[in-house]
Structure formats: structure tokens, C-alpha cells
Amino acid sequence: MANTEYIVRTKDVRKEFKMGQETMKALNGVSVDVKRGEYISIMGPSGSGKSTLFNAIGGLDKPDSGSVFINDVDMAQLDANELAFLRCHTIGYIFQTFNLITVMTALENVRLPTIFAGMSAEEGEKRAMSLLDLVGLGHRYNHKPSELSGGQQQRVAIARSLANKPSIILADEPTANLDSRTGTEIIDLLRRLNKDQGVTVISATHDYKMLDVSDRIIWIRDGVVEKIELRSDLKIQVGGMQVPAGSH
């Protein structure tokens, strides 16, 4: 049953990369709890371990030690196929580089996860079409990614991430390759999905515009959690923070 308070929990997650002689401790004991329906931003400088944490939570890479629980299920206990099931049904992924399948149209891209979920072709196509409408791209359904702008590609990716009604959307710097205005549109879209559909959003980001919509901000530095802030706490500090011009 999926009614526990915490949808994602990590316990003392560690991951290191060996590069020649050196070992790089990308995650050095990260424990975070994410409540169902929260909008979480993971902030931190480049190389601080955001993507590594993203991969660990998303089951895209195994941590060296520590555990990740999704709906109280320890991911390490799942076999390869169960992990695929989890990725198919429970988590939707959004990437900085969009990662659409280049040879497929927008509609085919959004439909793809429904195939893995065993949905029929008509049903999957209907669902994909309604999701493209939801992100405002219904009219471009027949276009390949190369024929879409960055912002449009990211919206297709968001539609795709929603294909099997995930409980969690995991995003790794979804606005990093977009200009400020398009970035804001993407953030608003994620927030709307979070509000209207109750999807938990966890997003790694450098983008200060994200802070406005986040319920909590997890700051990471050198592979450890530096601090966790509530947005309400943040409001007070905003004056002192270096918010780049153009963001609100």
C-alpha cells in the first residue's frame, strides 16, 4: 500500500567513483526524507553530488552503501525486473538534456512508457495525446525532437514522465539548458502538476527560480547534506541571498 507519510527516504547513502589512483566521494552519507506530495529542490554547487543522488533515488545506479526506500520498499531488495517495474510505474524522470528518443515523434516518445506498462496501442496513444495537450503541445504531436525548441522538448519529456501516472517526478536540472523565461514555464508546469495531481517532485537544480516554488530545499555540498530549509524560512532570508537578476 502506498499511504506511508514518506514516499522517498535515503539512509546514509554513499557512493564513490574511482578514477585511476584517486577516489572521489560523490555521496558521503546522505539521509533525506521526502513526504508524499512535496516539491523538493536539491541545490548545490557543480560536482556536489546532485546527479549522483538523483541516480540513487531513481534506481539508475546502485549506491555503494546505505539504502533508498521508495514507499518503504528498499530498492536494494528489488531484482532487475522489479526495478524496471518501479521505474515504469512509480517514477517519472526528467533530464537536463531532455533525453527524448531522436528518431521518434513527440507522440511516440510520450507513448513509449505505456508500452512497457502493457497498455494497448489505442489507449496508450489516447493517453499520450492528452498529456501532450496538458503540456500545451497537442498540435506538435507529429514532430521529431529535432523540430522542437528546447523548451518544447522539455515539455514533451515532462509529458513522457507522466505517462504511467508516477507518484514521483525526479528531475535533474530540468531548466539548465533553457533560457530564463522558458525555465520559468517549465518550473510553473512542474508546480502545477505537483499541486493539481499530487505528484511528488524532486528536482536537482542550480536555478534560483526553483526556490520560489519548492516546499523544502536540500542543500548539498561535497556529498553531504549541508542544510535543509523550508520555503517559509527562506522568505525571510531572500533579501540577503544573491538572487540573480531576472528571477523573481
Binding site: E82, F85, C88
Partner: peptide, 21 residues
Amino acid sequence: MPPETDAQSTVDDKPVHGKIF
């Protein structure tokens, strides 16, 4: 302020366990 979990959630409550066939 802790977020209130959306009551009219449209996200299906589904089991995490399962197999892809």
C-alpha cells in the same frame, strides 16, 4: 510550512512491487 498532502490526488496508489511483462 509543511506541505499539506493533496486530498484530491489523481495519482494512483499503486504497489511498488511488480514485474514487467
